[in-house]
Nucleic acid binder design. Structure first.
Length: 583
DNA sequence: GAGTTTGAAACT
DNA sequence: CAGTTTCAAACTC
């Protein structure tokens, strides 16, 4: 492609381009001269990064830097006005950008993944980035510096004309670019000063949209190839992207933002157990991992596969209920296709229980189990005490003490499980090594499977080790006669209550699934409609219909610890009511 | 650091 | 306006 269009070739168009430029940046009457300085300021270094006071600019307007080295600072450049003087645009009468002094906007950000704490209101990098143009002479929009309206400064470009020495050619290039696209130098992102921070997700999101929209095909709009993603905005109706994952409620997008937010312990602790219970509850256990689906959708795309693998991995870690193939999302719905959100445009599954299970819920559940254990221990102790009141006082106390100790250990283990920041392996190690109280073979078998699933995966060697360890524990359990009855009762209560909780989850998921399915039949949502809305709406409706006043997992399914404690209090006060049905 | 992938920009 | 080519950043190895 011919890139060497000379300035002389462009000369006849100059006037038109200048007029275009003026049209782009407004009528000169909007401009005012800077305050007169007592003496002409020396020009800035010709290749120094120029700075703009963007708060003096109306939204949606991008200044063009002065092209004359003698014009210092970031005077707005306009071919029609440059002979007058360096000019500065007056503040917009209504809106004012919240940003302060920014370096001249560059559309591309550094190679860093977006982070929770990233300052997104200003989506531009704080440090000027050097371009590496080779063929464009830095006079086309390919060049980030040129596109940003700044001189190349310290760049690695070849045959650069985006400098003072080639000002004529540069101006011509500006004119050509503007002639082609009058908005070429305007911000691509029409960002508003508003931002939304999702406290739960530590996610900051600029409320804005790409003026032209992206046209991504392979990146899922979750890589910096995508200008929307790069600007930390959601894709909008302006976009013509394919397989977009950069929409509100996207699990993949959330995963990217939360890859450091490690909930893997919570997920893994509940994952194997609940999936097992689900499998025994009559629901199908056919699992269609999302990862596999993505692979099927992108055969032979190694880069995409890797990205999707990472994404799925992150998703599993942060959103167990929504993404875990062995968790509720697929196990609890009879037809996973019903959970497909806007199938034509978003080929991602979203669990009907997504965002339903929160860390606090797990903590509440753990607390509940601990209290139940205490209830069982005390109840059993009372029974023992009545039988052997006169002859086994010492043993009774020892038994209670032993139960208390084991309960405390249980509590510790559960706290480890519930702690978002604790190392999972440590928790599991504690779980095995310090679980001194005897366990029933059923529980141990359950744990063993959990260990297989959660820790060792499919490793046969490790699985053998696991089995060996747990067999020893089983042996220990069968040989132990210290607090067998107490432990059995603890297990019975905990598992019974856990089953109730899971049944509640199943019911909730089924209801939401039904609602989602019906809403899907009514009409497929538009591409950019947030996926969560339907679920939330369905959930709300369900809540009304079912008399559920709160869709919070903790309030809905898990009775409060206080309530359990009250029951516990009743038991310990001799009411003898061991019925802990709290539904 | 080289090679590949990607999508906007430029061109036809 | 659609299809193709060019380009440089983003990404992978």
């Amino acid at each position: 492609m011919e890139q060497s269009e000379t300035a002389s070739d462009l000369a006849p168009r100059k006037l038109v381009r200048q007029l275009n430029f003026a049209a782009v940046y407004g009528d000169p009457s909007h401009l005012k001269l800077p305050p007169p300085s007592p003496s002409p300021s020396p020009p800035p270094p010709s290749h120094s990064p120029l700075r703009l006071q963007l708060d003096l600019l109306p939204p949606g307007q991008r200044p063009w830097l002065c092209s004359e080295p003698q014009e210092q600072q970031a005077w707005l450049y306009s071919p029609r006005l440059k002979l007058v003087s360096p000019v500065r645009r007056i503040p917009h009468p209504v809106k004012k950008l919240p940003v302060k002094v920014l370096q001249v906007a560059k559309p591309k950000s550094p190679r860093s993944q977006p982070q929770c704490n990233v300052e997104l209101k200003d989506t531009t990098p704080k440090k000027q980035k050097q371009c590496n143009c080779k063929n464009s002479r830095c006079l086309k929009l390919y060049c980030e510096c040129f596109a940003a309206g700044i001189y190349c400064d310290g760049c690695n470009c070849v045959n650069c004309h985006n400098n003072v020495d080639n000002e004529a050619a540069r101006q011509e290039a500006v004119g050509i670019t503007l002639e082609r696209n009058p908005n070429a130098f305007r911000p691509k992102i029409a960002s508003s000063p508003l931002e939304r921070r999702d406290s739960k997700e530590c996610e900051i999101q600029v409320i804005g949209k790409h003026n032209k929209g992206c046209h991504c095909k392979k990146s899922g709009c979750l890589k910096k190839y995508c200008e929307c993603f790069q600007a930390n905005i959601l894709c909008s109706e302006n976009c013509k992207c394919m397989d977009c994952k950069n929409f509100e409620g996207s699990d993949e997008r959330r995963a990217i933002f939360h890859k450091d937010y490690n909930l893997v312990h919570i997920k893994q602790a509940a994952n194997a157990t609940i999936s097992r219970v689900a499998g025994s509850s009559g629901y199908g256990t056919h699992l269609t991992p999302k990862k596999r689906k993505i692979h099927e959708m992108f055969p032979g795309k190694s880069a995409m596969d890797q990205t999707d693998n990472i994404t799925a991995q992150y998703q599993q870690e942060i959103d167990p209920m929504a993404s875990s193939p062995s968790f509720l999302s697929d196990s609890f719905v009879s037809d996973p296709s019903n959970t497909r959100i806007s199938a034509s445009s978003r080929s991602t599954y979203r669990s009907v229980l997504a965002d339903f299970f929160q860390p606090q819920n797990v903590k509440n559940l753990c607390s509940l189990f601990v209290v139940l254990s205490q209830v069982a221990a005390k109840t059993n102790a009372e029974m023992i005490g009545k039988v052997d009141q006169q002859t086994k006082t010492g043993n009774f106390e020892a038994s209670v003490a032993s139960s208390s100790k084991s309960l405390q250990e249980t509590r510790d283990v559960h706290q480890l499980v519930c702690d978002d920041h604790v190392n999972k392996d440590e928790a599991d190690a504690v779980d095995i090594a310090n679980y001194n109280r005897p366990l029933s073979p059923e529980t141990l078998a359950l744990m063993c499977d959990e260990q297989d699933d959660m820790i060792f995966g499919n490793s046969s060697a490790n699985g053998v080790a696991c089995n060996s360890t747990l067999q020893n524990m089983i042996q220990k359990s069968s040989n132990s006669d210290g607090c067998t009855d107490v432990c059995r009762e603890q297990e019975r209560l905990i598992l019974t209550k856990f089953l109730d909780v899971l049944r509640g989850l199943v019911t909730h998921g089924s209801i939401k699934e039904t609602m989602c399915s019906s809403s899907t039949k009514k009409g497929e949502r538009s591409k950019k409609e947030p996926a969560d809305n339907a679920n939330i709406g369905a959930e709300t409706n369900v809540g009304r219909e079912k008399g559920i006043h709160n869709n919070s997992f903790g309030n809905y399914l898990i009775p409060s610890v206080t309530k359990i404690s009250q029951t516990n209090y009743a038991v310990t006060n001799g009411h003898g009511n061991n019925d802990l049905s709290l539904t």
